[in-house]
Design a protein around this nucleic acid. Structure first.
Lengths: 360, 360
DNA sequence: GTGAAAGCGCTAACAA
DNA sequence: TTGTTAGCGCTTTCAC
């Protein structure tokens, strides 16, 4: 016990000399300034309790010595942090998800929104089958909460996370009996606008490419159905092809339709990537877009305008989406009232859906 | 002083009861297990010092209560962390950079490589004009080092960071008098392969699209020059157009050439994005790729194969790149010997460079 | 306006 | 094999 005290005493005799190669810390700045660490701490956090002259002197000292407050220690003491985890679940087999340009733009938008609000962004890849692991991001204090991009078919797992009180916001569709918070775009209207546009440009046999089992896609499909119904066009189930995001699936979808000799003159693809691949597959079969088939995509990724033909599509509000996700998470963490949010979508007309010559 | 002691005594009487809403901590698990925190700590870190039965009991307790060790506290105590910062500098005006599909894929690759090695990834956007700020990421203990994607024209700033001993690895070109470490692909060979391929497919008047002032592009340009020289084709400076990555610049490049009536039958674009936009611009002017003009891009982004015509390009080894960047940074942090690395590039032949009919 | 000292949650040296 | 205790770098109460 006495020994212990002695050790402590030694320690407290403030003679830390910034050894070269050693990281600067507050005590070093304090020594340099001839004040205590308390004063340095106050000066650096712009406390009004500290003399102006002292403050500027300390600030200058800190800057010239490249000193930055140790965030970890600060967080520990303050019992909070300013880091948000962004999770892009990935399929162990494909690792495909992060590469969809839409998710990527969302990542950029989130990075901006978080930076804007003074938060750090921890980017995590998590196995889609082990989504329960995202709880650890918060439980371990790595992040104050989690923004998850890619709802996929993980509704139940997400509900469970929310039930476990993990601060979580998901980009995706609002679903019935959902205990987690979502931010997403108006997929039903999006699907409706896309289909309606194809109908209005003279298409009648409109195929739907996408897996309606996925919440967002399901809602786009809902919009597709509504548009058909509204125009008195019967739904032909054979025109609905559950193409996934993965490579080759658009090609197979097109092949399947053509092999079965199912006639179609329009395609509403549930993502731009899918649409582009479909156009390629159609071309291989000698079908020209938009002459033979009108195509509308979804997302309005950057390349859509440079594609040939340029792609008619539904624009999702990415910038607003990132902001909304961040705001929702911060509200959730602050225990504020909070409801899921649905952002507007918009039809962007380009070449791929140009009207076909009126049928004879 | 006595009061102080008393407070401490109170504190040490271990009666922390996991209040609902309070975060679980090690003491709680210790109480539950009827052991000390030391034992819990040891059990959770798989120390051999702890009884097997005790270990499994504690592990079970921790899991069932969703307890995760507080990483911040642990890092503080251990004096290290397992977080790496990945920085994508951005231009305040355009915010363009993160959206280039190549950088994005690199991000994915880095996320994988870091996850693989058990590191967290902190994604930071930093104003390209304030690159000195990246030093803070390390100085503040947020990250053990920085991986920077996008060398651009910041050679001097990067050198200065390295001189300040900031652990830093950059994706880019190896340059003369460089004190920071780079990992990049073999741009000279890439440029050479691309140009040579165009020559071998019958093109003679080959334009170069890209800003040779940027280190990587400069090296691709170097390869372009070498290929021309090797085939005895004179360099025509009017064919070199400093198109940037930004929107519209490819179109202007094409327009400029056509307006000045500068004849060309090939384009080597320094990125796939640039190539795609150039193809669009050419088409608008009635020029067909590859019939009238052969085009080769750079990067081999995912969409290149779906583009029409599918894009001949130079593939950069993204997966290897991510791994190499991570390995380099970890070596740097561990003070291991380290040199910049140049990865191989590869020509991928597709439609956009199909041989033109032999000139009459 | 400034300093002394305690403690955030954890690990490890030392004691038992 | 387990427990006690100090302290990682910081902020803040309390005392002056």
């Amino acid at each position: 016990m006495p020994r212990t005290h002695k050790r402590k005493r030694f320690k407290k005799v403030v003679t830390r000399i910034p050894v070269s190669g050693q990281r600067m810390q507050m005590q070093d700045i304090a020594n340099l300034a001839g004040v205590s660490t308390s004063t340095v701490s106050r000066a650096l956090s712009h406390s009004s309790l500290v003399n102006d002259e002292t403050r500027t002197r300390i600030a200058e000292l800190a800057r010239s010595h490249n000193y930055s407050i140790n965030i970890g220690a600060r967080n520990l003491r303050l019992q909070h942090s300013r880091t948000v985890a962004v999770v892009v679940p990935y399929d162990v087999r494909t690792r495909q998800h992060i590469s969809d340009p839409f998710f990527v733009s969302m990542l950029g938008s989130l990075a901006d929104a978080l930076t804007e609000q003074g938060y750090d962004m921890l980017l995590s890849r998590v196995d889609a089958e082990r989504l329960d692991l995202v709880a650890q991001l918060e439980a371990s204090g790595r992040a104050i909460g989690v923004i998850l991009i890619g709802q996929w078919h993980h509704h139940d797992q997400l509900n469970e996370l929310a039930n476990r009180k993990v601060p979580l916001v998901v980009w995706g569709a609002r679903l019935p009996r959902q205990t987690y918070c979502t931010v997403g775009s108006d997929n039903i209207t999006g699907g409706l606008l896309a289909t309606q546009h194809l109908i209005e440009t003279g298409r009648r046999r409109i195929a739907f490419f996408g897996d309606p089992e996925l919440p967002e896609i399901g809602q786009r499909y809902e919009g597709y159905q509504r548009a058909l119904k509204h125009h008195g066009i019967p739904l032909d189930a054979r025109l609905v092809v559950a193409a996934e995001f993965s490579e080759g699936s658009s090609r197979r979808a097109v092949d399947a339709l053509l092999e079965k000799k199912i006639v179609f003159d329009g395609v509403f693809a549930s993502s731009d990537l899918l649409a582009m691949r479909a156009i390629g597959a159609l071309r291989e079969k000698g079908l020209i877009v938009p002459r033979d088939v009108g195509v509308v995509g979804y997302d309005d990724i950057e390349l859509s305008q440079y594609f040939h033909p340029s792609l008619t599509t539904i624009r999702q509000p990415i910038l607003k989406g990132g902001e909304a996700l961040v705001n929702a998470l911060l509200a959730l963490v602050a225990n504020k009232a909070l409801s899921s949010e649905v952002l507007p979508t918009e039809l962007v007309v380009r070449e791929s859906s140009a009207p076909s010559p009126a049928p004879p």
